[in-house]
Computed example of a mutant assay.
Amino acid sequence: MDNEKPRLLVVVGSVREGRFGPVVASWVAEQADAHGGFDVEVVDLAEFDIPLALPAASPKYAGDDYPRPAGMAALTSALANADAFVLVTPEYNHSYPASLKAAIDWHFTQWTAKPVAFVSYGGAAGGRHAVLHLENVLTELHAVTVRDGLAFPNYFTAWQDGHPLDAEAPAYAKTLLDQLSWWANALRSAREAVPYPA
């Protein structure tokens, strides 16, 4: 791993059977690798034990001592080590999946003062309702949400062989990654220079 590059974590947010998320996340990771500004890792929430029931104490105050299940240790480590995130999410009932909410709620400081970009997919809205909700949640955790995201309406007819049919999609992805790279480098330097005020 190149220690000079920010570490980008691409998160597959859906755990639903037959989900399309891994296809989208794989394409996003390809775009990020081609961009060259990041060390890229993909994590799939389906591979972790993420209970919906939370301890009484908030992770906001417990920090590293927060009592998380052993099955979540690798996810916690990946989130903590990341300098930037791309959350890949579908839209379920005009919002985002419970799996993604649970993963966020089990963590707090891992998101703080780090940039988050969104790639969504769905029906006519392309997952945009999910992203609107996520922007509110991540702001509460002191993350910085990137303005330009990617949304794939009617993904079931708009993709073929693991790639979107829209020829402009790579250019849109580059814009997202350029912005994410700027924020990742700026915020990493800021975190190293001065601790973020809690």
Rank of each mutant, 00 (worst) to 15 (best):
E4A: 15
R7D: 10
L8W: 13
L9D: 02
V10T: 09
V10H: 14
V11T: 05
V12G: 01
G13L: 03
V15D: 10
R19W: 03
G21T: 06
P22N: 07
V23A: 05
V24F: 01
V24A: 07
A32G: 09
D33M: 00
A34K: 02
G37E: 01
F38T: 00
F38P: 04
D39L: 12
V42G: 00
V43G: 00
D44Q: 05
I50R: 10
A53E: 13
L54D: 09
A56K: 14
K60P: 13
A62H: 09
A62K: 09
G63N: 10
D64L: 14
D64T: 14
D64V: 13
R68Y: 15
P69Q: 12
P69T: 06
A73K: 14
A74H: 14
A82Q: 05
D83A: 13
D83L: 13
A84S: 12
A84N: 11
V86T: 02
T89A: 03
E91A: 08
H94C: 08
S95N: 12
I104H: 03
D105W: 00
W106Q: 10
H107N: 12
K114S: 05
K114N: 05
A117N: 03
A117L: 05
F118G: 01
F118C: 06
F118Q: 08
F118N: 04
G122N: 08
G122L: 03
G123Q: 10
A124C: 10
L132I: 15
H133L: 15
H133D: 10
L134V: 07
L134G: 04
L134C: 05
E135F: 14
L141C: 09
T145N: 03
V146D: 02
V146L: 01
G149K: 01
L150M: 07
F152M: 04
F156P: 05
Q160G: 06
H163N: 08
P164V: 01
A169Q: 08
A173K: 01
L177H: 04
D178G: 03
L180F: 09
S181I: 01
W182R: 08
W182H: 12
N185F: 14
L187C: 11
S189E: 15
A190D: 13
R191C: 08
E192D: 15
E192C: 10
A193S: 15
V194E: 15
Y196F: 15
P197L: 15
